[in-house]
């Protein structure tokens, strides 16, 4: 299998004035197309920083990141935004839905920046929301939905532009474990049935079972 993301000797350093904080130290890894990768580590280990780099939200201080063969470490912000919009779907721990938009509007939102036809997007969004079991919740706002429902809206939003990769940062961190399992099941299904590459960041050891690739990280370094 070909790698979709390749990270080579990457450093991420935050300049805090007097001290320089190395959050990632010489990290290298590859994620292949179709992988279900779990990035596992305690809080403060640098796993979210790693996810930000993998998902093109951020660029490394040193080292190279290849996304589908292109070196994106030197990309401009707008070039990264283009990749994020087309190829990456995001699921966040705190859902990060816009509170004043309905579930349907939240799901349609990413299509605006791809210049897609609104009618088609709405139809597609309804289908996706239906497939995650939210057919009856289209016009509810995030405050009117439960944590699990909100996370399913967020997954629907992540899928609307049909990305190759879905990244999830602690997707079950803000919901109870039973609902969390359902969320993980949805991600597994996406990986198995639709062949999407899924990358999940978690500190929960139990979730290791879902992944075919486990990346353990501690103090900014990958633990073998």
């Amino acid at each position: 299998m070909t790698n979709i993301i390749k990270i080579e000797n990457v450093w991420k350093t935050y300049d805090l004035g007097k001290i320089k904080l190395n959050v990632l130290k010489n990290v290298s890894l590859e994620i292949d197309q179709g992988d279900f990768a779990i990035i596992l580590g305690p809080s403060g280990s640098g796993k979210s920083t790693l996810l930000n780099l993998v998902s093109c939200l951020d660029v490394p201080t040193k080292g190279n990141i290849f996304f589908k063969g292109k070196n994106i470490s030197e990309f401009s912000e707008d070039e990264l935004a283009e990749i994020r919009g087309k190829d990456i779907g995001f699921v966040f721990q705190r859902f990060n839905l816009l509170p004043h938009l309905t579930a349907l509007e939240n799901v349609v939102l990413p299509t605006i920046f791809q210049g897609k036809e609104e009618k088609e997007s709405i139809g597609l969004a309804k289908n996706i929301l239906e497939s995650v079991g939210l057919k009856e919740r289209l016009n509810h706002r995030p405050t009117e939905l439960s944590g699990g429902e909100n996370q399913r809206v967020a997954i629907a939003r992540a899928l609307i532009n049909n990305p190759e990769i879905v990244v999830a940062d602690e997707p079950t961190g803000n919901i109870d474990s039973r609902t969390g399992d359902k969320i993980m099941d949805i991600l597994v299904e996406l990986n198995k049935k639709e062949g999407k590459t899924v990358i999940v960041v978690t500190h929960n050891n139990d979730q290791v079972k879902y992944g075919n690739r486990i990346i353990r990280i501690k103090d900014g370094e990958i633990v073998k």
Partner: peptide, 16 residues
């Protein structure tokens, strides 16, 4: 600010 971050995460460019 957070909302702007979300928009950027889902693909909004500076011009958007």
């Amino acid at each position: 600010t957070k909302e702007i971050g979300i928009l950027k995460a889902v693909g909004a460019k500076k011009s958007d």
